[in-house]
Amino acid sequence: MEVRTIKVFTTVDNINLHTQVVDMSMTYGQQFGPTYLDGADVTKIKPHNSHEGKTFYVLPNDDTLRVEAFEYYHTTDPSFLGRYMSALNHTKKWKYPQVNGLTSIKWADNNCYLATALLTLQQIELKFNPPALQDAYYRARAGEAANFCALILAYCNKTVGELGDVRETMSYLFQHANLDSCKRVLNVVCKTCGQQQTTLKGVEAVMYMGTLSYEQFKKGVQIPCTCGKQATKYLVQQESPFVMMSAPPAQYELKHGTFTCASEYTGNYQCGHYKHITSKETLYCIDGALLTKSSEYKGPITDVFYKENSYTTTIK
């Protein structure tokens, strides 16, 4: 009895394709271990004539594949690729409408935090270190965002349907971005203890939790000093293409032309909904596939993004 075979390709990165001759009487799992086709788990399936010449994702289970996976995804987590594939199996079914010149995501599976993050990423200057993220990001900007969303979920250790947080998501993504040249110098002034300067680099240099107003941050924000008295913390120097200011959701007025974009969060910790506000020729609110415009805006804002380049204080 002759062994019926077909020729397929296996890959971990969709760049390096490895030619395989597979036995049609055995499952993919018996031949390769966990195997995925377009995100779908085909591990328990036997090869079919229609699979001839198709590319299958496999887990990096030998040295060659491990090197290829690390170079593309910059992670050695053995569960990463499987999590990416199972997320992709959902995100490829989502709709990605162009809204006001940006790629958004039609609401499904509690994905409003991903839509808000995706919209924000198209408006701030950011370059990702893992080629996987950078490639998928370019495709997302062009309207094909399924891979990018699935990668975000995998890097953030999230599953489809789980509630997510924009600030946490951005923080994970910033860790995989090139923020080497970003720098922030802060000064804390206390009447009792004097003053202390701190220099922050990388992710810490672009994120701040405690106030939404970048102007206020430049002037000074009140913080408790270690001595128990009130101290003032203010920005001395900022070198970065953008800054992200966050605070627990509270009524906040966004003035046209003073910011790049913002995240609105309605609801409580267990259950809520994100919308995205962007400042173009007027203010726009993007909620999944829905767009509304207004000249002014007041609502429960939790993150505001500002364009920056270089700032030095005039406070002496």
Rank of each mutant, 00 (worst) to 15 (best):
E2R: 11
R4F: 11
T5N: 13
K7G: 13
K7F: 11
V8C: 12
T10G: 06
T11I: 08
D13C: 05
H18R: 09
T19K: 13
T19Y: 12
Q20D: 07
V21C: 15
V22K: 07
V22E: 03
D23W: 13
M24W: 07
S25D: 14
M26F: 08
Y28N: 02
Q31V: 15
G33A: 05
P34S: 12
P34G: 09
D38G: 09
K44F: 14
I45H: 11
I45R: 13
K46A: 14
K46Q: 15
P47F: 05
P47S: 05
P47D: 02
N49G: 11
S50M: 14
Y57N: 08
Y57Q: 08
V58M: 08
L59I: 11
L59E: 15
P60D: 09
D63P: 08
R66C: 13
V67H: 14
A69L: 12
F70Y: 10
Y72Q: 09
Y73V: 03
D77G: 06
P78V: 09
F80W: 04
L81Q: 07
R83F: 05
Y84N: 05
Y84M: 04
S86G: 11
A87V: 05
L88G: 03
L88E: 06
L88D: 03
T91K: 03
T91R: 04
W94C: 03
K95P: 05
K95Q: 15
P97E: 10
P97W: 08
N100D: 11
N100H: 13
I105W: 03
I105D: 05
K106D: 15
K106P: 05
W107G: 04
W107Q: 03
A108R: 09
C112T: 03
T116I: 04
L118N: 05
Q122H: 03
Q123S: 08
I124N: 04
I124S: 02
K127L: 07
F128L: 06
N129Q: 11
A132P: 04
L133M: 07
L133I: 04
Q134L: 06
Q134S: 10
A136I: 03
A136R: 02
A136M: 08
Y137Q: 07
Y137W: 08
Y138A: 14
R139G: 09
G143E: 03
E144P: 03
A145D: 01
A146C: 07
A146D: 08
N147I: 09
A150H: 04
L151H: 01
I152R: 02
L153Q: 02
Y155M: 01
C156F: 02
N157S: 07
N157M: 06
V160F: 02
L163R: 15
G164P: 00
R167G: 01
M170L: 11
M170C: 09
M170Q: 01
F174E: 01
Q175K: 09
H176T: 04
N178R: 08
C182G: 07
C182D: 02
K183L: 11
K183G: 04
L186M: 15
N187P: 04
N187T: 10
V188A: 06
C190Q: 02
T192I: 11
C193H: 02
Q195P: 10
Q196I: 09
T198G: 03
T198C: 14
T199S: 09
K201F: 12
G202L: 01
G202E: 06
V203F: 14
E204F: 06
A205Y: 00
Y208C: 09
Y208P: 00
G210W: 05
T211L: 08
L212S: 03
S213T: 01
S213Y: 01
E215C: 05
Q216P: 00
F217V: 13
K218G: 01
G220M: 00
G220E: 05
V221L: 13
V221A: 04
C225P: 01
C225I: 00
C225H: 08
C225V: 01
T226C: 11
C227P: 00
Q230I: 15
A231P: 00
V236T: 06
V236K: 06
Q237E: 11
E239F: 08
P241A: 11
F242I: 00
F242Y: 00
V243G: 01
S246L: 03
P249E: 00
P249K: 01
Q251K: 10
E253H: 11
L254F: 00
K255C: 11
G257E: 10
T260Y: 07
C261I: 05
C261V: 01
C261N: 03
C261P: 00
A262M: 00
A262R: 00
T266F: 08
N268I: 07
N268R: 13
Q270Y: 07
Q270W: 06
H276C: 10
I277G: 02
T278M: 11
E281T: 06
T282F: 09
C285P: 00
C285K: 10
I286W: 00
G288F: 01
G288E: 00
A289C: 08
L290I: 15
K293M: 11
S295P: 10
S295K: 15
Y297F: 11
K298V: 15
D303W: 00
F305K: 02
F305V: 11
F305Q: 00
K307L: 12
E308F: 08
N309G: 12
S310K: 09
S310Y: 14
Y311W: 10
Y311A: 08
T313M: 15
T313D: 14
I315L: 15
